[in-house]
């Protein structure tokens, strides 16, 4: 199978080079793969994920994701809109919008009509099992439900890659299991590449491959 992600000697530092968040990363990921990223806090996991999603540019090295060269600044928003679905630790839903409207937010970058946007958003809510909550405000939902809305939002533009940064980090373990099961289902059913940062070794082992990050370097590729 083709590689959807290719990274060579990627370096990223913050605070004028004082903090080496990524210190020479080499990594390839195949299309449709499920990869877990583990490592202690501050080791550079989120930074790596942000590089993959083109939320930030590297200092040096090579990074190509879904055919986009992410070392240059060109068309990054189009890349994010079409190729990437982010799920953050915090749901980051917009409080004054209804659940279904929140899912429509990424679709403003597409050419869908308002009607088609609504149709697709409701379809995605069906997939995450929240059809009946479509017109509620996020504040009326439980933590797990909000994270499911965030997952539906990540799927809005039918991405090739889902980047999940500790998606269950703020949920209890029972809810976490449900959310993870949902993410893994989506990955399997749609052949979406899933890259997930997690603390939980048991969760990490569900993946095709576990990567450990330590001080901005990959220490083991299992």
């Amino acid at each position: 199978m083709d590689n959807i992600i290719e990274i060579r000697n990627l370096v990223k530092s913050y605070e004028n080079g004082h903090i080496k968040a990524l210190n020479g990363i080499d990594l390839t990921i195949r299309e449709g793969e499920f990869v877990s990223i583990i490592g202690p806090s501050g080791s550079g996991k989120s930074t790596l994920l942000n590089m993959l999603g083109a939320l930030d540019l590297p200092d040096s090295g090579y990074i190509n994701v879904a055919g986009y060269d992410l070392t240059s600044n060109k068309k990054l928003n189009k890349f994010r809109a079409q190729k990437i679905g982010f799920v953050f630790q915090l749901h980051n839903l917009i409080p004054n919008l209804s659940v279904v409207e929140n899912i429509e937010i990424p679709m403003f970058t597409s050419k869908l009509s308002n009607k088609m946007m609504r149709k697709r958003a409701l379809f995605l809510l069906d997939i995450v099992g929240l059809h009946d909550k479509a017109f509620q405000k996020p504040s009326k939902l439980s933590g797990g439900e909000r994270q499911r809305v965030a997952i539906a939002r990540a799927l809005a533009n039918n991405p090739s890659i889902i980047l999940a940064d500790e998606p269950t980090g703020s949920l209890d373990s029972k809810t976490s299991v449900k959310i993870l099961a949902q993410l893994i289902d989506l990955h399997r059913n749609n052949n979406v590449t899933l890259i997930m940062v997690t603390h939980d070794m048991a969760v990490a082992r569900l993946a095709d491959r576990v990567i450990e990050v330590l001080d901005g370097k990959l220490v083991s590729v299992g």
Binding site: L55, N77, K78, R80, I84, F86, T109, R153, N157
Partner: peptide, 13 residues
């Protein structure tokens, strides 16, 4: 944060 999310989901400047 919200503006960060809008950028993450691909909104152009």
């Amino acid at each position: 944060r919200e503006i960060g999310v809008l950028k993450a989901v691909g909104w152009s400047n």
